[in-house]
């Protein structure tokens, strides 16, 4: 073995130790734990047949999917605007938009309560103006807004970086060939941004699937899977079920992301 080969192997050692000790080992332990309950591996069948768990899974996937799509829509339009226009206060605005990156989920949840809770700003406005009640913080709507709030900056930064690299001549070429704004967006801009959209959308989705702090702050009875896992684990001390649900959550997230990536990859390849 040559010296530099040995060095390369040595350089991989820290990662190997880290991956072994803190990634693979706990993961293996988690999977083992899910089979150590009274019903053994049959637990997975019970979990998958449990309507409450499945409803929570469905809601988690739905809210995460909606959050990803909404974040992509908001952040892409904002990114295209911010990249193409130079105006006073632009960098302040970008800073403000990326601010939520610094907040933990608890703070985001807190802000949603301040906005849409019983004592919230929206409710006060609705009461004073229309003599109505407007409370949405403690529901899926509140959760959706909270997740959206911290998904937008992640998507925005990635899409802005990609939009800055787009060759402006490509859009001018499409326009010179007679393409209107919609056709330019559909045929040139979005295909050019596609890799960034897929990557940042996947991050937003995975983050929302596993997010817990916001949901926990808003209400303890919101049925998303991370909340169910927490309840099973800490309150019911039902470790095997919590472990099995964790494995299911991980597998479902991974599978959906895999599907989205290969679908998007095929769409990019076949584009035009």
């Amino acid at each position: 073995m040559r010296a530099d080969d040995r060095f390369t192997l040595l350089a991989a050692l820290p990662l190997a130790i880290f991956a072994g000790a803190f990634l693979l080992l706990p993961l293996a332990r988690l999977i083992m734990a899910s089979g150590e309950g009274p019903s053994g591996w049959a637990l997975y069948g019970q979990v998958l047949a449990n309507p409450r768990y499945m409803r929570a899974l469905g809601q988690t996937v739905a809210v995460s999917g909606l959050v990803s799509l909404a974040a992509l829509a908001v952040a892409t339009t904002a990114a295209l605007f911010l990249v193409r226009r130079r105006f006073f206060g632009r960098s302040v605005l970008i800073g403000l938009l990326t601010f939520p990156l610094a907040f933990p989920g608890v703070v985001v949840g807190f802000m949603i309560i301040l906005l849409g809770g019983r004592q919230g700003l929206m409710n006060a406005l609705a009461r004073d103006l229309f003599d109505a009640r407007l409370v949405f913080a403690y529901s899926m709507t509140g959760l959706f807004l909270g997740y959206l709030y911290f998904s937008i900056p992640r998507v925005l930064l990635t899409v802005m970086a990609a939009a800055e690299k787009l060759d402006p001549a490509l859009e001018e070429a499409a326009r010179s060939l007679g393409a209107g704004p919609v056709a330019v967006l559909r045929d040139v801009t979005l295909p050019g941004l596609a890799p960034a959209l897929v990557a940042s959308g996947a991050v937003a989705f995975a983050t929302a699937m596993g997010a817990f702090g916001t949901a926990f702050t808003l209400a303890t009875n919101i049925d998303v899977l991370p909340m169910v896992i927490y309840t099973e684990f800490t309150l019911a001390a039902n470790i095997a079920t919590a472990a099995a649900l964790s494995v299911v959550l991980g597998l479902v997230t991974w599978a959906l992301l895999f599907l989205a990536r290969s679908f998007a990859g095929a769409a990019v390849a076949a584009g035009g």
């Binding site: 060759d167 001549a169 070429a173 499409a174 010179s176 295909p191 050019g192 990019v268 584009g271 035009g272």
Partner: peptide, 11 residues
């Protein structure tokens, strides 16, 4: 129009 970079659509 023919652009300096040719600006062919890569997709």
């Amino acid at each position: 129009m023919v652009f300096q970079s040719y600006a062919l659509f890569p997709n």
